[in-house]
Design a protein around this nucleic acid. Structure first.
Lengths: 152, 152
DNA sequence: CTTGACCCTAAAGTACACTATAGGGTTTAT
DNA sequence: ATAAACCCTATAGTGTACTTTAGGGTCAAG
């Protein structure tokens, strides 16, 4: 019932290398079970879902150590108090909402550029509509408290 | 009229170090003008807006070289054709929308955890509501084509 | 039964984004 | 005018996240 894939198959599906998967294991992020006859790694469906979570989280700017903490919320529930879980998830939700906000601003600014640009083969300098759109909003400060370096 | 700040003042406002600002200059990301009497860096308001853009972009997972390209859309318009600008912005908008989608899924999953958790001082293992919420959705594949390594 | 495509470990190397160090000049307050 | 608090360059070092190398074992096909 539980379909187990070998490392190469998982890597191919996720569009990463086998070395990256072995690295994630060495970092305690994704630990497959090992076949005891061949010594090969065997990844379950849950392992693959966990990998998807890791890759999506990386994409939006979370570090491997943050991802490890997020994953531990579900797998090491007995290590944390409810209070810790509640505070931690609350903080992460705020951080995520702030990232969404920033991305929406970027999307809007780029859409303005995209829509204003005629798309022709001439230099974008010639594209007068684009020139008239030198919108300082793109760089405007959205007054965000989570800007700058992380305070670990 | 144009208020110019020294590196330390800019660093403080942005909550980064002066070394990072000098590093961004060496990487051609943010080039302030230099005072010709003291040799000090002087940052204009536009420089500070550009810095905000850099920091916000970094936060949501863009690399410095991607950010450099995004910035060059506005500053080196004569180097690109309208077609290039239109294609590039179109691709970036898709990428941003995909990041927003991923973040919304994470936010939802964490909100479920957050709301289910009683927040008390006992171990989260005891929190039966949380236990019943072992939702595989958090790790589900959203079938996203931009997953995995970047294809530069 | 061997060959090619896979898998393994261990350890060294790399790219990116800073961060720290050494040695020195400038500005501002007392 | 001198000391603290800033600024400068140049270069070396660090942490993160892989990536490569070296030297082998496993497995399915012919």
């Amino acid at each position: 019932m539980d379909k187990l894939l070998k490392i190469g198959e998982v890597a191919k599906q996720a569009n990463i290398t086998v070395e990256t998967l072995r690295f994630y294991q060495s970092e305690q992020l994704l630990i497959p079970k090992m076949s005891n006859q061949s010594g090969y790694r065997l990844y379950s469906v849950q392992d693959q879902q966990k990998l998807n979570f890791i890759l999506h989280s990386k994409k939006v700017g979370f570090s491997l150590s943050e991802i490890k903490q997020l994953l531990s919320l579900r797998t090491d529930k007995d290590q944390h108090t409810c209070e810790e879980v509640k505070n931690y998830t609350g903080d992460k939700i705020d951080e995520i909402e702030s990232k969404i906000h920033d991305l929406q601003k970027m999307s809007l600014a780029l859409s303005n550029l995209h829509n204003a640009c005629c798309g022709g083969s001439e230099s974008a300098k010639q594209c007068t509509i684009l020139n008239s759109l030198d919108d300082p909003e793109l760089f405007a400060n959205s007054n965000n408290k989570t800007l700058g370096k992380n305070h670990d």
